[in-house]
Design a protein around this nucleic acid. Structure first.
Lengths: 223, 223
DNA sequence: TGGACAACTGTCACTAAGTGACAATATAGC
DNA sequence: GCTATATTGTCACTTAGTGACAGTTGTCCA
C-alpha cells in the first residue's frame, strides 16, 4: 500500500508559511521510527523525550508539538498496518466478497525494500505493546480510531446510518478480531515463524470479520 | 452484585502490619470516586494529583502509590460494571443460556441505595471517556482486562485452551460489543432516558455476544 | 526574483506528574 | 502492651508537558 500516496495533488490548500501535509507526516513518521527503536532498545520508561528529540534532530519543545505525549510517539508506527487495512476497505467494491478483495490485493502488492525494515518496527512495537502498559494504551487507541473508521465504512456498505447501533456493533467486533489476529501474527513472526504462511492471514481476517458480524459484513452486497 | 463480598475468609494470609485486601480496595474506590467527581466538575487536565489527594485526605505521595498515574485513578469506577459482568459470567451455569442467566440475575438483584449515586459516577465517567482522550485510554484498558478475563471464562466453557485463537477471537468480539452497548446505554441515561427501558439491555448484550461469536457463545453447552 | 505573510522552530521559564530514600507511624498477631 | 512489618508522610529530585515570545523558514503572489 505504499503505492497509494501517488500524486494526489488535489488538496492544494497550503497556506503561506504552512508546510505540505506530506512533509508533516514524514516528520511524524521519522519521530515515530526513532521512538520505536529507542523503546525497543531501552524500554519505554528509560527513554526520555530528550533522547527521542535528539535522535531525530529536533528540539524537545518541537517534539511535544508533534505528539501530545511520549507513548503516542509510536502511534504512527502502530497505526501503519491498521491504516493500510482501512484504506483497503475503503476501496472494497460492493460486488466482491471481503475475502476475495483482500486476497486479490495480497497477490498484487509489491514489497518495497525500504518497507521491510519498517515492518520490523511495526511488529516489534505490536509485540512490545502486549506487555508494556504505556504502549498498550497507544495500541488500543489506534484500534479505537480504526473502529471509528470502520463504522463509516460499514454504514456506507450496509446503507445504514453510522449512528445505528447494529453498525457500531459490527465495527467494534470486526476491529477486535482483526486486532487479535494482528497481535497473534506479530507474535508468531517475532518468534521466527515463516512469513510465507502469513499469506493466509488476510483470509483468516476476512473469515473472522464475517463471523464476528454475524455474516452481515463480508459477502457481496447489492450495488 | 454487592452481595458477593460475603465472608470469603479463606485467605487469611495477612502479615503483621499489613492491612486487609478489603481495606485497600475501599481506599482505591474512595480515591476513584473523588477523582471521578473532580474530573467531571473541572475536566481531567485541570485536576491535579494534589487536589485528588486532598479530597480523600492522603498525601500526594501515597496517591501515586495507589495509582500509577492520574488517568488510572478512575479505573475502579470505570471497571465497576465490567467486573460485575465478569463475575456474573463466572457463575454462568453450563446448562443455561446467556440470555436466561443475565435476565434471571436482573430480576433478582436489589438496588442498594448507596449504589445509586455510585452508578451515576460510572455513567458520567463512561460518557466523559468518549471525548477526553486520557479517560478513553483508561476505559479501553479496563475493557482490555475484561477481555482477558473472558478468554479464561470462554475457554473453560468451550473446553478449549485459553491460547486457542478462536477462543481469543470470541472473547475480543464479545468484549467489544458489550463495551459499545455500555457506551450507548450510558449516553442514553445521561441524556435523560428512562432507566426502566434499561431492563432489556442485558438481553441485548446476550444476543450481541451470541452474534459476535458466531453462535459459539451464548447457548447452553454439555455439562 | 523579491518581498509579505503565516506557519514552523528554538529558547526560556514554568507547572505538574511521578519516583527513590528514609524516617515516622499505624496495625496485625502474639 | 510488645514486636515485626506494612503503610504513610516528608523531602529532594527527574522528567513530562505547556505558554510566551523571538527568530527562522517556507509559500504565495506580484
Amino acid at each position: 500500500m505504499r503505492n497509494n500516496g501517488a500524486n494526489d495533488m488535489t488538496k492544494n490548500e497550503r497556506k503561506p508559511g504552512g508546510m505540505s501535509e506530506q512533509r508533516q507526516q514524514r516528520i511524524r513518521l521519522e519521530i515515530s521510527r526513532e521512538a520505536a527503536r529507542l523503546f525497543w532498545e531501552q524500554g519505554v520508561a528509560a527513554t526520555t523525550g530528550e533522547q527521542i528529540a535528539a535522535a531525530v534532530g529536533l528540539s524537545v519543545r518541537t517534539l511535544w508539538r508533534y505528539f501530545r505525549n511520549k507513548e503516542s510517539c509510536v502511534e504512527p508506527v502502530l497505526a501503519q498496518d491498521g491504516e493500510e487495512f482501512v484504506a483497503l476497505l475503503r476501496r472494497w467494491p460492493r460486488d466482491v466478497s471481503l475475502e476475495d478483495h483482500l486476497m486479490e490485493w495480497a497477490v498484487n502488492r509489491t514489497k518495497d525494500p525500504d518497507q521491510q525494515s519498517f515492518d520490523q518496527a511495526v511488529i516489534k512495537m505490536t509485540v512490545l505493546a502486549e506487555k508494556e502498559p504505556d504502549l498498550r494504551t497507544a495500541w488500543l487507541m489506534t484500534n479505537d480510531r480504526i473502529e471509528r473508521a470502520l463504522v463509516e465504512i460499514f454504514a456506507d456498505r450496509l446503507r445504514r446510518s453510522p449512528d445505528d447501533i447494529e453498525v457500531r456493533l459490527h465495527a467494534a467486533a470486526a476491529t477486535a478480531v482483526v486486532r487479535v489476529i494482528s497481535e497473534d501474527v506479530s507474535a508468531a513472526l517475532m518468534a521466527g515463524a515463516d512469513p510465507t504462511s502469513l499469506g493466509n492471514t488476510l483470509g483468516q481476517m476476512a473469515r473472522a470479520v464475517h463471523t464476528a458480524t454475524g455474516g452481515a459484513v463480508g459477502d457481496p452486497v447489492d450495488p
